[in-house]
Protein backbone atom coordinates (compact mmCIF):
# COMPACT_ATOMS: atom_id res chain seq x y z
CA UNK A 1 0.00 0.00 0.00
CA UNK A 2 1.18 3.49 -0.73
CA UNK A 3 0.62 6.62 1.27
CA UNK A 4 -2.60 8.38 0.41
CA UNK A 5 -4.59 11.37 1.57
CA UNK A 6 -8.02 10.81 3.10
CA UNK A 7 -10.54 13.63 2.91
CA UNK A 8 -14.18 13.61 3.93
CA UNK A 9 -16.63 15.07 1.45
CA UNK A 10 -19.01 17.57 3.06
CA UNK A 11 -21.60 17.50 0.33
CA UNK A 12 -22.23 16.03 -3.11
CA UNK A 13 -20.90 18.97 -5.16
CA UNK A 14 -17.67 18.90 -3.11
CA UNK A 15 -17.29 15.20 -3.71
CA UNK A 16 -17.89 15.54 -7.44
CA UNK A 17 -15.47 18.41 -7.71
CA UNK A 18 -12.75 16.60 -5.80
CA UNK A 19 -12.94 13.43 -7.84
CA UNK A 20 -13.24 15.33 -11.14
CA UNK A 21 -9.53 16.04 -10.85
CA UNK A 22 -8.80 12.29 -11.17
CA UNK A 23 -6.92 10.87 -14.15
CA UNK A 24 -9.73 8.36 -14.72
CA UNK A 25 -12.78 6.93 -13.00
CA UNK A 26 -11.73 3.42 -14.04
CA UNK A 27 -8.91 1.05 -12.98
CA UNK A 28 -5.89 2.98 -11.78
CA UNK A 29 -7.79 6.11 -10.69
CA UNK A 30 -5.56 8.37 -8.62
CA UNK A 31 -8.52 9.86 -6.76
CA UNK A 32 -11.27 7.54 -5.56
CA UNK A 33 -14.44 7.63 -3.55
CA UNK A 34 -14.50 5.30 -0.58
CA UNK A 35 -17.58 4.03 1.24
CA UNK A 36 -17.63 0.55 2.82
CA UNK A 37 -14.04 -0.16 1.86
CA UNK A 38 -14.59 -3.92 1.65
CA UNK A 39 -13.17 -4.13 -1.86
CA UNK A 40 -11.00 -1.09 -2.56
CA UNK A 41 -8.87 -1.45 0.60
CA UNK A 42 -8.04 -5.06 -0.33
CA UNK A 43 -6.75 -3.94 -3.70
CA UNK A 44 -4.83 -1.06 -2.20
CA UNK A 45 -3.08 -3.50 0.14
CA UNK A 46 -2.16 -5.59 -2.90
CA UNK A 47 -0.87 -2.49 -4.75
CA UNK A 48 -3.40 -3.17 -7.49
CA UNK A 49 -5.06 0.17 -6.76
CA UNK A 50 -2.74 3.02 -5.76
CA UNK A 51 -4.90 6.11 -5.26
CA UNK A 52 -3.16 9.22 -4.02
CA UNK A 53 -6.38 10.47 -2.51
CA UNK A 54 -9.52 8.88 -1.07
CA UNK A 55 -12.71 10.87 -0.72
CA UNK A 56 -14.78 9.50 2.13
CA UNK A 57 -18.42 9.82 1.10
CA UNK A 58 -19.91 8.09 4.14
CA UNK A 59 -21.20 11.42 5.47
CA UNK A 60 -23.29 12.23 2.40
CA UNK A 61 -26.65 10.88 3.65
CA UNK A 62 -27.10 8.67 0.63
CA UNK A 63 -28.18 5.59 2.58
CA UNK A 64 -31.95 5.78 2.43
CA UNK A 65 -34.19 3.11 0.94
CA UNK A 66 -37.60 4.56 0.05
CA UNK A 67 -40.61 4.07 -2.19
CA UNK A 68 -40.85 6.22 -5.28
CA UNK A 69 -44.05 8.00 -6.32
CA UNK A 70 -44.69 5.55 -9.12
CA UNK A 71 -44.53 2.56 -6.80
CA UNK A 72 -40.92 1.68 -7.44
CA UNK A 73 -37.95 1.83 -5.08
CA UNK A 74 -35.07 4.22 -4.62
CA UNK A 75 -31.96 2.77 -3.00
CA UNK A 76 -29.30 5.20 -1.83
CA UNK A 77 -25.74 4.64 -3.00
CA UNK A 78 -24.59 4.21 0.59
CA UNK A 79 -27.36 1.81 1.64
CA UNK A 80 -25.52 -1.16 3.11
CA UNK A 81 -26.00 -4.53 1.44
CA UNK A 82 -27.39 -5.98 4.69
CA UNK A 83 -29.94 -3.18 5.02
CA UNK A 84 -31.11 -3.61 1.44
CA UNK A 85 -31.30 -7.39 1.80
CA UNK A 86 -33.46 -7.14 4.90
CA UNK A 87 -35.58 -4.19 3.78
CA UNK A 88 -39.28 -5.18 3.97
CA UNK A 89 -40.14 -3.65 0.58
CA UNK A 90 -37.19 -5.37 -1.09
CA UNK A 91 -38.14 -8.71 0.45
CA UNK A 92 -41.76 -8.28 -0.57
CA UNK A 93 -41.46 -6.80 -4.06
CA UNK A 94 -37.95 -7.65 -5.21
CA UNK A 95 -37.02 -10.93 -3.50
CA UNK A 96 -34.47 -11.58 -6.24
CA UNK A 97 -32.39 -8.69 -4.91
CA UNK A 98 -32.63 -9.79 -1.29
CA UNK A 99 -31.70 -13.37 -2.22
CA UNK A 100 -28.80 -12.24 -4.36
CA UNK A 101 -27.36 -10.02 -1.65
CA UNK A 102 -27.71 -12.68 1.02
CA UNK A 103 -25.95 -15.24 -1.17
CA UNK A 104 -22.87 -13.04 -1.38
CA UNK A 105 -19.94 -12.45 0.96
CA UNK A 106 -20.41 -12.84 4.73
CA UNK A 107 -22.62 -11.02 7.25
CA UNK A 108 -19.70 -8.82 8.32
CA UNK A 109 -18.95 -7.78 4.74
CA UNK A 110 -22.61 -7.16 3.94
CA UNK A 111 -22.83 -4.88 6.97
CA UNK A 112 -20.15 -2.65 5.46
CA UNK A 113 -20.50 -3.01 1.70
CA UNK A 114 -22.70 -0.43 -0.04
CA UNK A 115 -25.02 -0.52 -3.03
CA UNK A 116 -22.81 1.67 -5.22
CA UNK A 117 -19.64 -0.02 -4.03
CA UNK A 118 -21.10 -3.38 -5.00
CA UNK A 119 -22.01 -1.96 -8.44
CA UNK A 120 -18.30 -1.26 -8.89
CA UNK A 121 -17.01 -4.51 -7.36
CA UNK A 122 -13.71 -5.67 -8.87
CA UNK A 123 -13.20 -9.00 -10.55
CA UNK A 124 -11.79 -11.95 -8.59
CA UNK A 125 -9.44 -12.98 -11.39
CA UNK A 126 -6.28 -14.09 -9.56
CA UNK A 127 -4.04 -12.38 -12.11
CA UNK A 128 -5.76 -9.05 -11.66
CA UNK A 129 -4.87 -9.35 -7.97
CA UNK A 130 -1.23 -10.26 -8.53
CA UNK A 131 1.00 -7.39 -9.66
CA UNK A 132 3.77 -9.85 -10.56
CA UNK A 133 1.69 -11.07 -13.51
CA UNK A 134 0.46 -9.57 -16.77
CA UNK A 135 -3.12 -8.26 -16.76
CA UNK A 136 -4.66 -5.96 -19.32
CA UNK A 137 -7.27 -4.74 -16.89
CA UNK A 138 -4.69 -3.67 -14.33
CA UNK A 139 -1.91 -2.74 -16.73
CA UNK A 140 -3.29 -2.12 -20.24
CA UNK A 141 -1.25 -3.79 -22.94
CA UNK A 142 0.62 -6.17 -20.62
CA UNK A 143 -1.34 -9.24 -21.73
CA UNK A 144 -3.87 -11.63 -20.21
CA UNK A 145 -2.39 -14.29 -17.93
CA UNK A 146 -5.75 -15.93 -17.36
CA UNK A 147 -6.01 -17.14 -20.93
CA UNK A 148 -3.98 -20.32 -20.70
CA UNK A 149 -3.65 -19.98 -16.93
CA UNK A 150 -5.94 -20.55 -13.99
CA UNK A 151 -9.33 -19.63 -15.43
CA UNK A 152 -11.79 -22.05 -13.85
CA UNK A 153 -13.75 -19.24 -12.21
CA UNK A 154 -13.67 -16.88 -15.20
CA UNK A 155 -16.08 -15.76 -17.88
CA UNK A 156 -17.43 -17.58 -20.93
CA UNK A 157 -19.65 -14.76 -22.18
CA UNK A 158 -18.60 -11.29 -23.28
CA UNK A 159 -14.91 -12.17 -23.27
CA UNK A 160 -12.24 -10.91 -25.63
CA UNK A 161 -8.72 -12.02 -26.35
CA UNK A 162 -7.63 -9.26 -23.98
CA UNK A 163 -9.67 -10.16 -20.92
CA UNK A 164 -11.88 -12.95 -19.59
CA UNK A 165 -12.41 -11.60 -16.07
CA UNK A 166 -15.80 -12.22 -14.49
CA UNK A 167 -17.94 -9.59 -12.86
CA UNK A 168 -18.23 -11.29 -9.44
CA UNK A 169 -21.23 -9.46 -7.99
CA UNK A 170 -24.51 -11.12 -7.07
CA UNK A 171 -26.33 -7.83 -6.48
CA UNK A 172 -25.62 -6.62 -10.00
CA UNK A 173 -27.17 -9.71 -11.54
CA UNK A 174 -30.39 -9.08 -9.66
CA UNK A 175 -30.31 -5.37 -10.51
CA UNK A 176 -29.83 -6.30 -14.17
CA UNK A 177 -32.91 -8.50 -14.11
CA UNK A 178 -34.80 -5.68 -12.40
CA UNK A 179 -33.63 -3.18 -15.05
CA UNK A 180 -32.27 -0.88 -12.37
CA UNK A 181 -31.45 2.68 -13.32
CA UNK A 182 -28.23 4.12 -11.95
CA UNK A 183 -28.37 7.80 -11.06
CA UNK A 184 -25.13 9.69 -11.36
CA UNK A 185 -24.16 13.19 -10.34
CA UNK A 186 -21.36 14.38 -12.58
CA UNK A 187 -19.59 17.60 -13.41
CA UNK A 188 -22.24 18.37 -16.01
CA UNK A 189 -25.20 17.59 -13.77
CA UNK A 190 -27.37 14.57 -13.09
CA UNK A 191 -27.95 11.70 -15.44
CA UNK A 192 -29.70 8.35 -15.28
CA UNK A 193 -28.08 5.31 -16.89
CA UNK A 194 -29.99 2.05 -17.34
CA UNK A 195 -27.91 -0.79 -15.91
CA UNK A 196 -27.80 -2.47 -19.33
CA UNK A 197 -25.81 0.53 -20.57
CA UNK A 198 -23.71 1.00 -17.43
CA UNK A 199 -21.23 -1.87 -17.85
CA UNK A 200 -18.83 -2.31 -20.74
CA UNK A 201 -17.53 -5.58 -22.13
CA UNK A 202 -13.72 -5.70 -22.14
CA UNK A 203 -13.11 -5.62 -25.91
CA UNK A 204 -9.73 -4.00 -26.45
CA UNK A 205 -10.04 -1.80 -23.32
CA UNK A 206 -10.62 -4.12 -20.36
CA UNK A 207 -9.40 -1.39 -17.99
CA UNK A 208 -12.67 0.42 -18.73
CA UNK A 209 -15.49 -1.39 -16.93
CA UNK A 210 -18.27 1.18 -16.75
CA UNK A 211 -19.37 4.44 -18.35
CA UNK A 212 -18.22 6.45 -15.33
CA UNK A 213 -16.06 9.52 -15.96
CA UNK A 214 -14.01 11.55 -13.47
CA UNK A 215 -16.33 13.39 -11.10
CA UNK A 216 -19.18 10.91 -11.53
CA UNK A 217 -20.74 10.03 -8.18
CA UNK A 218 -23.43 7.38 -8.06
CA UNK A 219 -26.11 8.84 -5.80
CA UNK A 220 -28.80 6.17 -5.96
CA UNK A 221 -30.39 3.35 -7.89
CA UNK A 222 -34.06 3.17 -8.81
CA UNK A 223 -36.15 0.11 -9.48
CA UNK A 224 -39.42 0.29 -11.39
CA UNK A 225 -42.49 -1.42 -10.00
CA UNK A 226 -42.79 -4.97 -11.32
CA UNK A 227 -46.02 -6.09 -12.99
CA UNK A 228 -48.58 -7.40 -10.55
CA UNK A 229 -48.13 -11.12 -10.09
CA UNK A 230 -44.49 -11.20 -11.18
CA UNK A 231 -42.28 -13.62 -9.26
CA UNK A 232 -38.57 -13.32 -8.89
CA UNK A 233 -35.80 -15.55 -7.65
CA UNK A 234 -32.03 -15.90 -7.52
CA UNK A 235 -30.09 -19.15 -7.72
CA UNK A 236 -26.36 -19.29 -7.11
CA UNK A 237 -24.21 -22.33 -7.81
CA UNK A 238 -20.73 -22.64 -6.33
CA UNK A 239 -18.37 -25.24 -4.92
CA UNK A 240 -19.00 -24.72 -1.24
CA UNK A 241 -22.23 -23.86 0.51
CA UNK A 242 -21.42 -20.29 1.49
CA UNK A 243 -18.93 -17.46 1.18
CA UNK A 244 -17.80 -18.08 -2.36
CA UNK A 245 -18.23 -16.34 -5.70
CA UNK A 246 -20.64 -17.90 -8.17
CA UNK A 247 -19.60 -20.42 -10.78
CA UNK A 248 -22.96 -19.62 -12.31
CA UNK A 249 -25.97 -17.75 -10.99
CA UNK A 250 -29.30 -16.72 -12.39
CA UNK A 251 -31.73 -13.92 -11.56
CA UNK A 252 -35.21 -14.47 -12.92
CA UNK A 253 -38.30 -12.28 -12.94
CA UNK A 254 -41.33 -14.00 -14.41
CA UNK A 255 -45.07 -13.56 -14.71
CA UNK A 256 -47.48 -16.04 -16.23
CA UNK A 257 -50.89 -15.27 -17.64
CA UNK A 258 -53.29 -17.98 -18.74
CA UNK A 259 -50.59 -20.63 -18.54
CA UNK A 260 -48.20 -18.64 -20.71
CA UNK A 261 -45.18 -16.59 -19.80
CA UNK A 262 -46.04 -12.98 -20.53
CA UNK A 263 -43.25 -11.24 -18.65
CA UNK A 264 -39.72 -12.58 -18.28
CA UNK A 265 -36.33 -11.16 -17.44
CA UNK A 266 -33.22 -13.29 -17.27
CA UNK A 267 -29.80 -12.26 -16.02
CA UNK A 268 -26.77 -14.40 -15.25
CA UNK A 269 -23.77 -14.04 -12.97
CA UNK A 270 -20.49 -15.90 -12.73
CA UNK A 271 -20.33 -16.47 -16.46
CA UNK A 272 -20.06 -13.01 -18.01
CA UNK A 273 -17.55 -10.21 -18.08
CA UNK A 274 -20.47 -8.08 -16.98
CA UNK A 275 -23.81 -8.95 -15.39
CA UNK A 276 -25.31 -10.84 -18.30
CA UNK A 277 -28.78 -10.00 -19.57
CA UNK A 278 -30.35 -12.58 -21.87
CA UNK A 279 -32.89 -10.63 -23.92
CA UNK A 280 -32.94 -13.05 -26.84
CA UNK A 281 -33.85 -15.94 -24.58
CA UNK A 282 -36.50 -13.77 -22.94
CA UNK A 283 -38.06 -13.08 -26.33
CA UNK A 284 -38.06 -16.77 -27.14
CA UNK A 285 -39.93 -17.57 -23.94
CA UNK A 286 -42.56 -14.89 -24.17
CA UNK A 287 -45.92 -16.44 -24.93
CA UNK A 288 -44.64 -19.94 -24.26
CA UNK A 289 -45.67 -22.16 -21.39
CA UNK A 290 -43.43 -22.70 -18.39
CA UNK A 291 -42.06 -26.16 -19.19
CA UNK A 292 -38.65 -27.70 -18.63
CA UNK A 293 -38.23 -28.10 -22.40
CA UNK A 294 -38.91 -24.43 -23.08
CA UNK A 295 -36.57 -23.40 -20.27
CA UNK A 296 -33.84 -25.67 -21.62
CA UNK A 297 -34.32 -24.22 -25.12
CA UNK A 298 -34.01 -20.71 -23.69
CA UNK A 299 -30.88 -21.71 -21.77
CA UNK A 300 -29.36 -23.04 -25.00
CA UNK A 301 -29.90 -19.60 -26.54
CA UNK A 302 -28.20 -17.84 -23.61
CA UNK A 303 -25.10 -20.02 -23.83
CA UNK A 304 -25.03 -20.36 -27.61
CA UNK A 305 -22.14 -17.97 -28.08
CA UNK A 306 -20.18 -19.02 -24.99
CA UNK A 307 -16.40 -19.17 -25.37
CA UNK A 308 -14.90 -21.64 -22.92
CA UNK A 309 -11.29 -21.49 -21.74
CA UNK A 310 -8.98 -24.35 -20.75
CA UNK A 311 -10.62 -24.96 -17.36
CA UNK A 312 -14.12 -23.49 -17.44
CA UNK A 313 -15.91 -25.33 -20.23
CA UNK A 314 -18.08 -27.03 -17.62
CA UNK A 315 -19.70 -23.68 -16.90
CA UNK A 316 -21.71 -23.96 -20.12
CA UNK A 317 -23.63 -26.99 -18.90
CA UNK A 318 -23.70 -25.71 -15.34
CA UNK A 319 -25.14 -22.35 -16.43
CA UNK A 320 -27.85 -24.10 -18.42
CA UNK A 321 -28.88 -26.21 -15.43
CA UNK A 322 -28.78 -23.10 -13.27
CA UNK A 323 -31.11 -21.24 -15.64
CA UNK A 324 -33.54 -24.12 -16.05
CA UNK A 325 -33.78 -24.67 -12.31
CA UNK A 326 -34.11 -20.97 -11.48
CA UNK A 327 -36.82 -20.49 -14.11
CA UNK A 328 -38.75 -23.49 -12.91
CA UNK A 329 -38.49 -22.18 -9.35
CA UNK A 330 -39.78 -18.78 -10.47
CA UNK A 331 -42.60 -20.38 -12.42
CA UNK A 332 -43.68 -22.42 -9.40
CA UNK A 333 -43.36 -19.62 -6.84
CA UNK A 334 -46.59 -19.09 -4.98
Amino acid sequence: MELFKLVAARNIPDAVKAQAAANTAQNGADIRFIAGGTNLIDYMKLNVERPKQLIDINGLSLDRIEKTQDGGLRIGALARNADVAHDPIVKEQYPVLSLALLSGASPQLRNMATTAGNLLQKTRCVYYRDTATACNKREPGSGCSAIGGYNRMLAILGTSEHCIATNPSDQNVALTALEAVIHIQGTKGQRAVPIAEFYLVPGTTPERETVLEPGDLITHVTLAKLPTGAKSTYLKLRDRASYEFALASAAIVMKQEGGKIDFIRIAMGGVGTKPWRATEAEAALRGKSATAENFRDAAEIVLRDATPQSQNGFKIELAKRCLVHAMSQASQAA
Binding site: Y127, A132, T133, S145, G149
Partner: peptide, 8 residues
Protein backbone atom coordinates in the same frame (compact mmCIF):
# COMPACT_ATOMS: atom_id res chain seq x y z
CA UNK B 1 0.64 -21.50 -12.50
CA UNK B 2 2.72 -23.69 -14.83
CA UNK B 3 4.36 -20.65 -16.45
CA UNK B 4 5.54 -18.82 -13.33
CA UNK B 5 5.43 -21.63 -10.79
CA UNK B 6 3.42 -19.37 -8.47
CA UNK B 7 0.80 -20.83 -6.13
CA UNK B 8 -1.83 -18.66 -7.73
Amino acid sequence: DPRSGAPI
